[in-house]
């Protein structure tokens, strides 16, 4: 499980140092969060997760003197930019992720580019995730890969906290049911 972020004094120092233009501050922030952003971009089906990660940090660093907030806010900013860039990339190649309504009965078999992106996961996990809706997958990815809170995830995806909570509730229970079916089948 990723290290919890709250209250890390190193972050505050690195952020302040980066605001003053110190390469050490930038480097610390880069090393601390680049992997998460890359993993997020990859698992969301980006063709160029490394490039997106670079773009995200470049955009962030260029305006870091305008940033005010704690580590959680900083991470939320990173993933907001990352999410938008992944969506832009999907748009550019004409394969925008399918948006589904918050219908509890709605289930869609995966088949978009995330299918390939999820290849890094175990076969069973990949199969489970591909049976979730795109929105459900995105919420789980933001919660677990990006290690964001419910509130942060809601803000980034543009939903209310309750809607996000309902979405993740359906996602986890769907995973639970499908994994149990697999276990019984085996």
């Amino acid at each position: 499980m990723p290290a919890k972020r709250s209250g890390d004094p190193a972050f505050g120092r690195a952020l302040e140092s980066a605001r003053q233009g110190s390469p050490a501050g930038f480097e610390w922030l880069w090393r601390r969060f680049a992997r998460q952003v890359t993993a997020f971009a990859r698992v969301r089906g980006s063709d160029d997760p490394d490039g997106i990660t670079n773009d995200v940090f470049l955009a962030t660093f260029q305006r870091i003197d305008q940033f005010t907030g704690d580590e959680d806010a900083f991470v939320a900013l990173l993933f907001t930019i990352a999410r938008n860039k992944v969506i832009d990339e999907h748009r550019q190649r004409g394969r925008r992720p399918v948006t589904t309504a918050l219908d509890p009965t709605a289930e869609r078999t995966g088949g978009n580019t995330e299918d390939e992106a999820l290849a890094g996961l175990g076969f069973g996990t990949r199969e489970l995730l591909l049976q979730l809706t795109d929105d459900q997958r995105e919420v789980l990815i933001l919660r677990l890969v990006a290690d964001l809170s419910l509130e942060q995830t809601a803000a980034i995806t543009g939903r209310t906290v309750n809607a996000t909570k309902a979405l993740q509730h359906r996602a986890v229970n769907a995973l639970r049911r499908k994994s149990s079916v697999e276990a019984v089948t085996k």
Binding site: M1, P2, W30, R31, A34, R35, Q36, T38, A39, R42, V43, P49, D50, T53, N54, G120, L121, G122, G124, T125, L128, L129, L140, I141, L144, V145, D147, V172, L175, R176, S179, S180, E182, A183
Partner: peptide
């Protein structure tokens, strides 16, 4: 729920498997 925990655990571990670009 072993299968569920495995799926969530694998998602959590994804950043560890991603090299810093």
């Amino acid at each position: 729920d072993a299968g569920l925990h495995q799926a969530l655990g694998e998602l959590r571990a994804l950043p560890d498997h991603a090299a810093t670009p």
